[in-house]
């Protein structure tokens, strides 16, 4: 026997289940209970940065959109700084930008959307710059532990090629699963980011 180290063990994950909407996005399930709801619009009138829409679907191993997925995103502001005490980079905080949003896929189509800004680049480990990216977290019925991934931007080709995380992906063809395509629709910038849970084109998920 030895001395006990005394660490606690992390609480085990369980699926968010089919009714995650009533807990986390009741207003999207037609359920009016909270005065203040957390939603998919991250920008306010004074938020700095290029306005963008992110949209896509979460697709299961049979090719069908997951119509009950819940997604959260977490990102730096336009200056590349996270609104958190641990981020001591030089960029300015934006008082009108928290950088976090949450939404559910539409029950009928499986489409999700976020209204946000394109983030600036953030310094990574060993002071290597990371390309601009948005962190995603996906839960749903049938997902036993939340899935972490990142969305990068198709118009940042040079930065993406130098990104230390994308370069960790051994099979280069899989890197494209993390890059959202930029397009314009009615004067708005739209990035399309589908998340494939399984099979051909399976999105790269992280153990972090």
């Amino acid at each position: 026997m030895t001395q006990a180290l005394g660490y606690l063990k992390e609480t085990a994950s369980q699926t968010a289940g089919p009714y995650v909407h009533i807990g986390l996005i009741p207003h999207m399930a037609g359920f009016d209970i909270f005065q203040n709801n957390f939603g998919n619009v991250l920008v306010g009138a004074d938020t700095k940065g290029e306005r963008i829409t992110i949209e896509g679907r979460v697709i299961d191993g049979t090719g069908v959109p997951v119509s009950d997925a819940l997604l959260e995103i977490w990102q730096a502001n336009a200056d590349g700084r996270y609104n958190h005490a641990a981020d001591r980079q030089k960029g300015a905080l934006d008082p009108d930008f928290r950088g976090w949003g949450r939404t559910g896929a539409e029950f009928k189509t499986g489409l999700y959307t976020f209204e946000t800004i394109k983030p600036g680049a953030v310094t990574g480990r060993h002071k290597r710059m990371m390309a601009p990216h948005i962190n995603f977290w996906i839960v749903a019925r049938g997902i036993n532990i939340g899935l972490h991934t990142r969305m990068y931007f198709s118009d940042e080709q040079a930065a993406n090629e130098a990104d230390p995380v994308l370069n960790l992906i051994e099979q280069k063809t899989r890197r494209s699963t993390l890059i959202a395509n930029r397009s314009e629709r009615g004067g708005n910038v739209v990035y399309t980011f589908d998340i494939v849970l399984q099979g051909d084109g399976e999105t790269v998920f992280f153990d972090i």
Partner: peptide, 24 residues
């Protein structure tokens, strides 16, 4: 339900950067 909603490829091990240690 986990059968068709489970990633089958290995997760990519990623050491933490600011993107992971910060949060809302």
């Amino acid at each position: 339900t986990s059968i068709s909603r489970s990633p089958r490829r290995a997760l990519l091990a990623l050491q933490n950067s600011l993107s992971e240690i910060t949060g809302p």
